[in-house]
């Protein structure tokens, strides 16, 4: 039995009268990649934000490595985050941003993993100001930041958005390597084809509720299909709504 890394116990988040997430009971274990999918406003981002401490859950509790997360930000030492939108202080250089994050996390050089810096070709951009970079290059900076501190938990929100195919594949390969070394990776993506080969389990959320959290193999077996893009609608008992992400596959 794999060791539990993250546990959500009946977690809910309400904005005014609207529950963005309700009754989320789920666990993520060490050494797995979980793909979070669902229509827009299904609760994926809220789930991630609750874990990251960006929003306070209205009810329930979240534990990381057995400790309930509260006001102490220390638990985030083990978390890397790659947001969907990469906006940085425009006048800082890439090198200054990397130094800033290293300082903020209290790391020394020996604790850093700079392999992505070279593999994504970021070495040549170190002295460039962030405001002069293209969206794709900023996304590469974001990927470097997420992996650089060798996190045990990696949260990636649409990680391939804006990246060229080669860089996207490189980033996902790195996520796989992190999983293989015992890390826990949570990925939200609308491009299921890109991440389905990487995912061990899939969590499907709808209207703030977790519909299922199952291993990819089991989903394929249950539905008798070869691809998640076909399996997910079958799991849900019919064609998905137009806004659903799997339609983009």
């Amino acid at each position: 039995m794999s060791e539990v890394r993250i546990r959500f116990d009946n977690v809910g988040k309400r904005y005014g009268r609207l529950w963005a997430l309700r009754g989320a009971d789920l666990t993520f274990v060490k050494g797995e990649v979980v793909m979070l999918i669902g229509p827009n406003a299904s609760g994926k981002t809220t789930l991630i934000k609750c874990l990251l401490g960006l929003v306070r859950s209205t009810e329930g509790r979240i534990s990381v490595d057995g400790k309930v997360i509260g006001n102490d930000p220390g638990y985030r030492r083990s978390i890397g985050y790659m947001p969907q939108i990469s906006q940085f202080p425009t006048a800082l250089t890439v090198g200054q941003l990397l130094d800033m994050m290293k300082d903020v996390r209290g790391l020394d050089d020996s604790a850093l993993d700079d392999s992505l810096v070279d593999e994504l070709g970021m070495r040549a951009h170190m002295d460039k100001r962030l405001g002069t970079l293209s969206g794709g290059t900023r996304q590469k900076v974001s990927a470097v930041l997420a992996f650089r501190s060798r996190p045990q938990i990696l949260v990636m929100d649409e990680p391939t958005a804006g990246l060229d195919p080669i860089s996207a594949r490189r980033v996902l390969k790195e996520a796989g390597a992190l999983r293989d070394s015992g890390g826990t990776v949570l990925i939200t993506s609308h491009l299921m084809e890109e991440v389905e080969s990487l995912a061990d389990r899939v969590a499907y959320l709808e209207d703030g509720h977790l519909r299922f959290l199952l291993p990819v193999k089991e989903i394929l077996e249950l539905t008798g299909t070869q691809r998640l893009a076909n399996a997910i609608p079958a799991m849900l008992g019919g064609p998905l709504k137009e806004a659903d992400p799997v339609h983009h596959v």
Binding site: L54, P83, V104
Partner: peptide, 10 residues
Amino acid sequence: EFTQLLAVQP
């Protein structure tokens, strides 16, 4: 957005 990135640091 950058403040969000800072807020997920320890």
